[in-house]
């Protein structure tokens, strides 16, 4: 099976809240996190997100692939930023050197030098912690929210019926399209097509994907006529609809929203007043300048 739903009902902190309240809290958390560059504040936020992940009832086994993929991606980019030293130029004007590492080789007569500076280390660290807290909160979502409630959640957040129902439809047809894709993949492999053997530049590779992309797209377009008919025949979009799934805010959900929005506004105010900007320990500033 190509698609398996990640969502399960679990005893977890996330699932104890109304999904709308959680989405609002999640957006506020994002807002708070991107307001700061101070690694001390980011560490607290990271600790908070980690706590939420631990309380979510997810096992390492079911989330391993997501973590390895996203984690690998974040670490790679943080390292890349550190090595080039090009990331945080807008935050600091001077750099304090811990060590300069000279390469043992030369490239066309130029000897590469890696400047290990306090600022670069702290910038990479801040970025790592910042993105990891955002990622941890985001990874939770597909595992914690019931796909059957996506529509009503977004309706509850104020989106119109048609757009909110589109969320439900997407969830409904993901497995159908996955199945169509699998059939096309099998059909083309049976004609000797080997996706592993894609070669050439980006454009050439995309062109070589045509045997998969064209049939899957055609199927989707042809299928959509039936889907539209089925919706029309059952009076979709003619008047405001009832949503069978009901969501009710309880005091704890309201509290979560108030806390989330409060923290966000407070963080916004702090960042406007210049609190929580990029930070390096004072003690390390005595090191020689680059």
């Amino acid at each position: 099976m190509l698609v398996t739903w990640r969502y399960r009902k679990r005893r977890s902190l996330v699932q104890s809240f109304d999904p709308r309240a959680w989405i609002i809290f999640y957006l506020c958390f994002m807002g708070v996190t991107i307001s700061f560059w101070d690694v001390r504040i980011l560490a607290i936020l990271f600790g908070l997100s980690l706590g939420i992940v631990i309380s979510s009832g997810l096992t390492w086994r079911e989330t391993r692939r997501a973590w390895l993929f996203i984690g690998g991606f974040i670490i790679y980019f943080s390292l890349f930023t550190f090595l080039t030293g090009r990331g945080g130029m807008e935050f600091y004007t001077e750099e304090h050197v811990i060590r300069n590492v000279q390469a043992s080789f030369t490239l066309f007569g130029w000897r590469p030098v890696l400047h290990i500076t306090v600022e670069r280390i702290f910038y990479a660290l801040s970025m790592l912690v910042r993105v990891f807290s955002l990622a941890s909160m985001t990874i939770l979502i597909p595992y914690s929210f019931n796909p059957a409630q996506y529509g009503v959640t977004f309706r509850g957040l104020g989106l119109p019926d048609k757009i909110a129902y589109a969320m439900d439809l997407t969830m409904r047809f993901v497995p159908t399209y996955a199945r169509d894709f699998q059939i096309t993949m099998d059909a083309q492999r049976a004609r000797g097509y080997e996706i592993e053997k894609l070669r050439g530049g980006l454009l050439a590779q995309v062109r070589k994907l045509a045997p998969l992309i064209v049939p899957v797209t055609i199927q989707a377009i042809a299928g959509s006529e039936d889907i539209i008919d089925a919706m029309d025949l059952r009076a979709f979009g003619i008047q405001p609809r009832t949503w069978l799934e009901e969501l009710h805010y309880r005091p704890r959900d309201r509290a979560l929203i108030v806390a989330g929005v409060g923290c966000f506004l407070f963080s916004l105010a702090l960042s406007i007043y210049g609190v929580g900007t990029f930070w390096v320990p004072e003690a390390l500033k005595s090191l020689p300048l680059l």
Partner: peptide, 26 residues
Amino acid sequence: LQDPERQILGTRVLNEVAFGLENLGL
């Protein structure tokens, strides 16, 4: 319609059977 795969719009049976009634605003 002919192909049940394309006319079932709900992720769960309950939601599917209720779809038309929801649209009528009952």
